[in-house]
Amino acid sequence: MNGWLLTAGIIAAATTLIHATVGGQSVVRPLLGSKMTAEPKRTLHVVWHMVTADLLISSIALLALAFTTQPSTPLVVFIAAQYLAYALVFLIVTLTADWPRPLLQLPQWMLLLPVAVLTLLSTM
Rank of each mutant, 00 (worst) to 15 (best):
E39Q: 09
L32M: 08
A97M: 12
L121R: 10
P40L: 14
T37P: 06
A85E: 00
L5Y: 01
M50Q: 15
T16H: 13
I92S: 04
L31F: 03
P100L: 03
A81M: 06
L17Q: 02
V46P: 00
W48M: 13
L5V: 03
V89N: 07
T119N: 03
L103W: 10
S26Q: 12
V77I: 15
S58N: 13
P102S: 11
M36K: 05
A8P: 11
L31Q: 04
T43Y: 09
L120F: 14
P71H: 07
V117Q: 01
T69D: 14
V22Q: 09
A64C: 06
P114G: 05
M50C: 12
W109I: 05
I92A: 13
L88C: 08
V46E: 01
A66I: 04
P30C: 01
L113D: 00
A12I: 01
Y86P: 00
L88W: 05
L31S: 10
M110D: 01
G23C: 08
P114V: 04
T16P: 02
F90Q: 08
S59V: 01
R101K: 14
A80F: 12
D54I: 06
F78M: 13
G23I: 01
P71T: 07
W48C: 04
I79N: 04
A64E: 10
W109P: 03
S122G: 12
G33D: 02
L95K: 12
L84Y: 08
L17P: 11
T96Q: 09
A53K: 09
L120K: 11
L104T: 13
I60G: 09
A64W: 08
I11F: 12
H19A: 12
A61P: 00
Y83M: 06
L32C: 10
Q25P: 07
F78C: 07
H45L: 15
F90I: 15
L62T: 02
L112T: 01
R42N: 15
T123C: 02
W109E: 08
T119H: 02
I57T: 13
A13W: 07
G24S: 05
T73F: 04
W109K: 07
I57R: 04
P114D: 11
L63Y: 09
I60V: 15
M50G: 14
A61I: 01
A80G: 13
W109D: 01
A13M: 11
G33L: 13
T69A: 14
T21I: 11
G3C: 00
L44C: 05
P30Q: 04
P40Q: 09
G33W: 02
V117M: 11
L63G: 10
S26I: 14
A66V: 06
N2F: 07
K35E: 15
V27T: 10
L120V: 04
N2M: 10
I11P: 00
P100N: 12
L88Y: 06
S58M: 03
T52S: 14
A85P: 00
A14C: 11
L103R: 07
V89G: 05
S122H: 00
I60D: 00
I10A: 05
Q25F: 15
L44N: 07
T15I: 08
P40S: 09
L120G: 14
I10G: 05
W48V: 08
V115A: 09
P114A: 03
K35D: 14
L6Q: 01
L95T: 11
L121P: 03
H45E: 02
I10E: 01
A116E: 01
A80L: 07
A13F: 13
L17D: 05
I57L: 15
T43W: 12
M110F: 11
L56M: 04
